[in-house]
Design a protein around this nucleic acid. Structure first.
Lengths: 145, 145
DNA sequence: CAACAGATCTTGAATCATTCAAGAAAGTCC
DNA sequence: GGACTTTCTTGAATGATTCAAGATCTGTTG
C-alpha cells in the first residue's frame, strides 16, 4: 500500500503541484493497475467526493507526461493506466474479456529493439502486446456464443 | 498493382460475396497500406462514387474477420488497415507525425512469444510496436514547438 | 433464365471516450 | 499574507465507431 506522503513525494519529485485530485488519481492508479479512465474516476470520487472527469483526464495526462504513470491502449480498448514505469515490461491481453496482465520480457531489457534503424526511424521503445485468452475465459465459453 | 480479378478471387477464396464496395475496399487497402478508415472511404468513393461509410466499416470488419486484412491501432491513433497478413511483421510508429512503416521481425518468426504461459494465458500472438521518430520528423523540428 | 433467401448496402441517428473553452479556485514562491 | 500561475469545475463539442430498419443485391436452386 502506498501512503499519501509517498504519493506527494512522487508528485513533488516530478515538479508537479500537489493537489487533492492528483494525489487521489495517482493513488488510484497504484491501487488499480490497468484501470481505465472511468474506473479511476470512480476510485477518485470514492475517496474525495465529487471530482470532475475533466480533472482526472488532465491529471492523467500530466502524470503520463511526467513519467509517473504509463498509458496503454490495446486495440479496441479505451485508455488504461499503470504505475509500473521504466522497467520495460509488456502486457498480455485477453481477446475475450479484455483483461490485462503484466509480462516481464523474457529477453534482456529491450528485446526486439534489434530491428532498430529500419526505414530510417530513430526507435526509442519497443512495446509488445501478447494476445490470447485468460484462464477464466478459456474454461468458461465465450459470453457472446 | 492488383487487378480486379485478383481481388475477386481473394474474396471468393474467403467465402465472401463479391460486391462493388468490397472489391473497392480491398483494392484500396492493398493500394494504401496503413490507411485509416477515412482515407479508405475516400479512395473507395474515388473509384465508385458515393458509398456509405457504414458499408466501408462493415466491409473492413468482414475482411478483418476473414483474415484478408489486418487491423492495427497504435495508441492514440484511429484504426488502420493493411493487407500484409500471416507474415508476422511489426510496425514502427512515428511519435511526431503518426507515420507507420513495416518492420520484419529481426528474431525468427514469433519473437517474444517466449513469455508464453505467464498468468495462465493462452497466447496466440505477439504484436510488437516500435515507437520512434521518422526520418522526416527527425530533421524537421516538431510542428508543435 | 427466373425466383428465392439471406447477406449486404443505404440512410439516419446514437453512443461514448476524449477534448475544448472560459472562468473560478487553489498551490507555490516571495 | 499576496501575487502569479497552474489546476479544477462546468458545460458543450468533437469525431470515430456502432446500432437499427428497410431497400438492394449476390449466389444458388428450380
Amino acid at each position: 500500500m502506498l501512503t499519501t506522503p509517498d504519493v506527494e513525494t512522487a508528485l513533488r519529485g516530478a515538479s508537479l503541484r500537489v493537489t487533492r485530485p492528483r494525489t487521489a488519481v495517482l493513488a488510484a492508479v497504484y491501487a488499480h493497475p490497468h484501470a481505465d479512465t472511468d474506473s479511476i474516476i470512480g476510485a477518485v470520487r470514492a475517496s474525495l467526493g465529487e471530482v470532475s472527469h475533466q480533472a482526472v483526464y488532465d491529471v492523467l495526462r500530466a502524470l503520463t507526461t511526467a513519467g509517473l504513470v504509463r498509458r496503454i491502449q490495446p486495440s479496441g480498448s479505451v485508455a488504461r493506466y499503470e504505475s509500473r514505469v521504466g522497467d520495460n515490461h509488456h502486457h498480455v491481453v485477453c481477446r475475450s474479456c479484455g483483461a490485462i496482465a503484466d509480462v516481464d520480457c523474457a529477453v534482456a531489457s529491450t528485446p526486439c529493439l534489434t530491428a532498430s534503424h529500419d526505414h530510417g526511424f530513430t526507435i526509442d521503445e519497443a512495446e509488445v502486446t501478447y494476445w490470447g485468452v485468460c484462464p477464466g475465459c478459456s474454461t468458461a465459453p465465450a459470453r457472446s456464443s
